[in-house]
Amino acid sequence: MKKFYKYGLVAVLVLALMASVFGCSGGKTGEQKNAGTSVGEKKPTIVIGSKTFTEALLLGTMTYQYLQHLGYPVENKVGLGELAVIRPALESGQISGYWEYTGTVLINVMKHEPSFNEEECYKLVKDWDAKNGLVWLDYAPLNDTYGIMVRKDIADKYHLKKTSDLIELIKKGEPIRFVSTQEYNERPDGLAHFEKVYNFQYPKKYIINAALNVGYEALKAGQAEAGLAFTTDARVKAYGLVLLEDDKKAFPVYNAAPVFRKEIIDAYPQLPEQMKKLSSLLDDKTIMELNRQVDVDKKSVDEVSREFLKQHGLIS
Rank of each mutant, 00 (worst) to 15 (best):
I167Y: 01
I170W: 02
P114M: 07
H112P: 00
K157N: 04
E100A: 14
S115W: 09
R151V: 08
I154L: 15
N132Q: 13
E119T: 12
A89P: 13
F200E: 02
L142G: 01
H193Q: 09
A211H: 07
D138V: 03
I167V: 15
I208H: 05
K204Q: 15
K172S: 00
Y146D: 08
H159D: 10
K205N: 06
V150M: 13
K172C: 02
N117G: 06
E174F: 09
I207H: 11
R151P: 10
W128H: 10
S180D: 12
Q182W: 11
Q201M: 08
I170H: 02
V150K: 10
Y184D: 07
R177M: 01
P114G: 07
E120V: 02
F200G: 08
T102I: 11
N108D: 12
P114R: 04
Y158W: 15
R177Y: 09
L134S: 03
N209W: 06
P203Y: 09
H193A: 13
E100I: 12
D165S: 03
T145W: 04
F200V: 07
I167D: 02
G103F: 05
G97T: 01
K204V: 12
L160N: 07
V179W: 05
G93P: 10
K161Y: 07
A192L: 09
E174G: 05
E113M: 10
G93R: 12
H112E: 04
K152M: 10
S115I: 06
I176Y: 12
P114T: 03
Y158G: 13
N209Y: 08
E119L: 12
Y202D: 08
G103V: 09
K162I: 07
I207A: 09
E120M: 03
G93C: 05
A192E: 14
K123F: 01
